[in-house]
């Protein structure tokens, strides 16, 4: 057990290390010395932001110390939780801005991921037992997975938001309200949340349905299914076993798709101006706010790694085979 998780954690730590190193290398070594050109451009926009940026870059890159020391300084400031000062929302620290956006992103991502996984698995399982449903679920599933996230978001915003006028299409709550715990405000939150959620949910749904359908067909052809049928087990029992066993690879699939789902939420947030990390990234790019961009990148990487680790733990809990092999390995 320790060996298994140790190995996983090592990969995640290595990934974090590499991602952060990329984060450091890219602004430093990109052709055309982006640091200097950013500084030049920022100084035109706002002098005081430029001064802060200059100071931060000097601390970050310590432009006159050797490279290895610059690199160590970078990690040291990361360890202090110092992600720099935002240019876009000067003079707020990047860390605070991101922490304010994370709840919105999570509010979209978590329900969309979990619900699409559950509902998609459910559809896929039904598709595998019904030819008519199969002929519907499969093409619809493929179209949904082939849909760019932002395009479905645009269609929903246009159709249900602008044309039908059912839902608002911008922000996380009505600007006429101030955040509070009133029913009115919560209602506004939900109203603004629904379309981006739906969009994300629908695109993800197709993939899960197809995956489940294929997995369950594979399970229904497996030896244990054949044996049960030969002993006259009713269809219900065989399907139940197949469904449970097909869930396990779908869980692995969830881990593999995390990056894609996060990308989807970034794009969806942009369409709906939903103030999560995706929207921050867009603003950071528009305002040349590279501290904010790099900070958001770090948060995304860490979030994905944590989610991966949670899935690893869940997998061990639900699959007796892994559990037993690990116990055997530890003994």
């Amino acid at each position: 057990m320790r060996r298994y998780f140790g190995r996983k954690l090592f990969v995640y730590a290595l990934t974090f290390f590499i991602a952060m190193t990329v984060n450091w290398i890219i602004p430093r070594f990109m052709p055309g010395d982006p640091v200097q050109s950013r500084l030049a451009r920022a100084s035109l926009q706002s002098p005081e932001a430029s001064a802060a940026m200059q100071a931060y870059y000097e601390r970050l890159f310590g432009l006159d110390v050797p490279l290895w020391q610059q690199y160590l300084n970078f990690w040291a400031s990361l360890a202090r939780g110092d992600l720099g000062i935002s240019i876009w929302l000067f003079p707020q620290p990047v860390g605070d801005i991101i922490l304010g956006a994370v709840p919105y992103s999570l509010a979209l991502l978590l329900p969309a991921i979990l619900l699409s996984w559950v509902v998609g698995n459910w559809f896929g399982a039904y598709a595998a037992r019904n030819r008519w449903l199969d002929n519907t679920v499969l093409p619809v599933g493929y179209v949904l997975t082939a849909t760019p996230y932002m395009w479905l978001a645009l269609l929903l915003a246009w159709g249900l938001g602008i044309v039908a006028g059912l839902f608002p299409v911008g922000g996380a709550y009505s600007f006429a309200l101030t955040p509070s715990a009133t029913p009115e405000f919560v209602g506004s939150l939900l109203q603004h949340w629904f379309l981006p959620f739906l969009s994300l949910f629908l695109v993800a749904l197709g993939g899960w349905a197809i995956g489940m359908r294929n997995m369950i067909i594979y399970e229904l052809e497996s030896d244990y299914s054949n044996y049960l049928e030969a002993l006259g087990a009713p269809r219900r029992l065989v399907r139940r076993y197949a469904f449970r066993n097909a869930m396990l690879p779908q869980l692995t699939g969830l881990a593999l798709q995390l990056g894609t789902l996060v990308a989807g939420s970034l794009l969806t947030e942009i369409v709906f101006s939903y103030p999560g990390l995706g929207y921050l990234i867009l603003q950071a790019i528009r305002n040349q706010d590279f501290f904010l961009l790099q900070g958001a990148f770090m948060f995304i990487v860490v979030g994905v790694l944590i989610a991966n680790f949670i899935i690893d733990i869940v997998y061990v809990l639900v699959d007796p085979r892994t559990r037993i092999q690990m116990q055997g390995g530890a003994a």
């Binding site: 849909t147 899960w208 995956g211 997995m215 690879p249 990056g259 894609t260 990308a263």
Partner: peptide, 15 residues
């Protein structure tokens, strides 16, 4: 791991 690959791109099917 599923019957096949899981493209890690902009929304490809997990399987």
């Amino acid at each position: 791991t599923g019957a096949g690959p899981a493209p890690g791109g902009g929304g490809a099917p997990p399987d």
